[in-house]
Design a protein around this nucleic acid. Structure first.
Length: 253
DNA sequence: GCCAACGTTGGC
DNA sequence: GCCAACGTTGGC
């Protein structure tokens, strides 16, 4: 299973750069203690760039960010995939190497399970690598399509492991900045259920807009609405409960 | 370490 | 197809 496919087109662009001999070393690592990178050819002080500090700030204010998660507790996430084909430079970037992108595609896979590979954004990668755990529940979001929205539920069935697609020069997700010593990561997810109705992004936005005060909606801090571009994002317990009610067709919402 | 330029995301 | 938002790059 893949993430938002545009990120892979970006990866393709990076491959082209690499072939031209101008690929750059990996940027600052947000979690230096966990991922050791023997060669740091770029002089960036780890964790101190503006972006790193922004990320740190976000993680600190983020309800799912606790690293001392009590055993047995469950975290919630939202992951974006693109269910529709998209043509980039004459090539359909959706269907390749049997990778597909809608919740129906996940349901059709062997064991209804698939690696969520191809994530290249650092913050999204770090969430998968450091925070997603077996048993966590994941909202499956359909992105960049006619009807963007939350399509169903899946669960994490394998903790993070290195993203081998990043090492494979022939793979669409090949990433010249990744190798065995500085890998990208992913988790495996398993289909749980498809919602009877897509929960449209427009509906969530409408709900937020119509709530009596800025503070009264359980969606007020939802990353999907506030941080649109993050492809793997945390969902709070409150947000999750609300989405679950919506998914079961609660007419009072 | 700053920040402008650039490239991508993703809703519309 | 447009374009605002924002993440990444790379010169300084």
């Amino acid at each position: 299973m893949g993430p938002v496919t545009r990120s892979s087109s970006r990866v393709v662009a990076k491959v082209a750069k690499s072939k031209a001999g101008i690929d750059k070393p990996l940027k600052a690592n947000n979690n230096p203690g966990i991922e050791k990178r023997p060669k740091k050819t770029r002089k960036v002080k780890v964790g101190n760039s503006k972006n790193d500090q922004d990320v740190k700030k976000r993680l600190e204010s983020d309800p799912g960010a606790s690293t001392t998660k009590p055993s047995g507790s469950k975290s919630f996430w939202l992951m974006k995939a693109e269910p529709e084909s998209r043509i980039v430079k004459g090539k359909d970037v959706k269907f390749r190497q049997n990778i597909k992108y809608s919740i129906d595609d996940l349901a059709d896979m062997e064991n209804q399970t698939s690696p969520w590979d191809g994530v290249r954004n650092y913050e999204a990668r770090n969430i998968m690598r450091d925070r997603m755990k077996i048993g966590d529940e994941v909202l499956f979001y359909h992105s960049n399509c006619k009807q963007p929205g939350i399509a169903g539920l899946c669960e994490v069935v394998r903790d993070a492991y290195p993203d081998f697609t990043a090492f494979d020069k022939d793979h669409p997700y090949y990433d010249p900045k990744s190798d065995e010593k500085a890998p990208r990561w992913f988790v495996d997810v398993k289909f749980v259920r498809k919602f009877p109705q897509l929960i449209l992004l427009s509906r969530l936005k409408e709900h937020l807009k119509n709530s009596k005060s800025a503070d009264s909606s359980p969606l007020k801090n939802m990353a999907l609405l506030n941080r649109g571009r993050l492809s793997v994002q945390p969902v709070s317990k409150e947000e999750m409960e609300f989405i679950m009610k919506l998914s079961s067709g609660d007419a009072t919402l």
